[in-house]
Design a protein around this nucleic acid. Sequence first.
DNA 1: ATATAATATGACCCATGGGTCATATTATAT
DNA 2: ATATAATATGACCCATGGGTCATATTATAT
Lengths: 211, 211
Amino acid sequence: MPKRTFNRLDDDKKERVMRAAIGEFQAHGFEKAKIEVIAQNAGVAKGSIYQYFDDKKELFIYSVTWALEYFMKVIDRQTPLKDMDVYDYFLSGSRERFKLLKREPLLVAFSMDVVSGKYGSLAKEVNSELNRIGEEYELKLIANGRKRGTIRDDLDDKTLLLFFQGVTEKFTTEIMEKAEGFKYEPTEEQYCEMESLMRKMVSLLKQGMGR
Amino acid sequence: MPKRTFNRLDDDKKERVMRAAIGEFQAHGFEKAKIEVIAQNAGVAKGSIYQYFDDKKELFIYSVTWALEYFMKVIDRQTPLKDMDVYDYFLSGSRERFKLLKREPLLVAFSMDVVSGKYGSLAKEVNSELNRIGEEYELKLIANGRKRGTIRDDLDDKTLLLFFQGVTEKFTTEIMEKAEGFKYEPTEEQYCEMESLMRKMVSLLKQGMGR
DNA sequence: ATATAATATGACCCATGGGTCATATTATAT
DNA sequence: ATATAATATGACCCATGGGTCATATTATAT
């Protein structure tokens, strides 16, 4: 957690510092990220960073937390329909992520790196907590589908979850990679391509998991 | 590429150096890996490392190449049956990887990290080359299945490939994570669990991709 | 207006570890 | 046996960048 001094800063300055930090970590990774550069990009002196955080590691961990909280706020806004099925969850989740990607490419890219384990043990705690939450939710969706009879019942939930996660993660990575090429406003055509790929993936998921 | 001096070393010493390097990079990542530690573990002086390689980066890149070539040798030994289908490819590939994991946990772990992009841009070239080769082969398998009529023909190859890769990669990661717990000799039970999960994944793949 | 507390600043300190180099050791040639 | 070339060694150099601290500036209280 940051020091008291940081919390007393006005929101604008806090945000400048966090975005500078996230940008630097995202671009160069934890080790190569320079506090001096973060300070410059935030428009503060290097010494100030150490008035806000104990050390580089704390700044990094708070960067992860900050990005996460940002998403929490955004995602909370669109209440997920209860009793959605896994496929709609995948579709709406992907569309949301895509919209966010356009608005906040840096935060999305950073979060993806965190989730993908690029920062190794540094983000472990936040990371496994996130996975736990996601898994719990997805398992619930699977259980629902099973009850409703839309999901095959010859396979256990853990296996279905793994399958579902594998497909969705690969799809997300693919979209992210394509998005790098968009820089940063995707054309209508690119948007359609994404939609199309998404539907095809759902078809594969449905046929694979369904009965 | 290493310097002439390194190539003239006897095979044993070469291997000691490479394994020490791979162990250190695997354990701590590129930045935190210490040349001094690599030298110690290889049983040579730090200065010697610089008689063999220009710098740390070159040592790293050669470590990747070395691990890769090791696998090439092993994999070449079991000639892949021509005209295999994607499912058999997945099954035999997974079993091979599992056997290797027991014999060479370090090399497998290191290679997985390389492939998963943990070293970022450092291993980019080798990495994308590897992906290209894998993709090419898998696309061929998919095309075969399509001809043979075992694969649905309402979806394009690229989509099927993405689906296949997503599932197989997730499965591989899962097995690797479990294997960490094996340390290092899996019990018969654990082996069966892996076999079972593998078959279930194939079932999902088949039902998803089949017609 | 003045005192006091909080914050900002950037010159500076210093541990770290990549890389060098003079010298010792060993291998090879004649 | 002796000269020469190749290799090994580890003390040393030094750039880098995380973190500190004395001082300046600014905010808050009375």
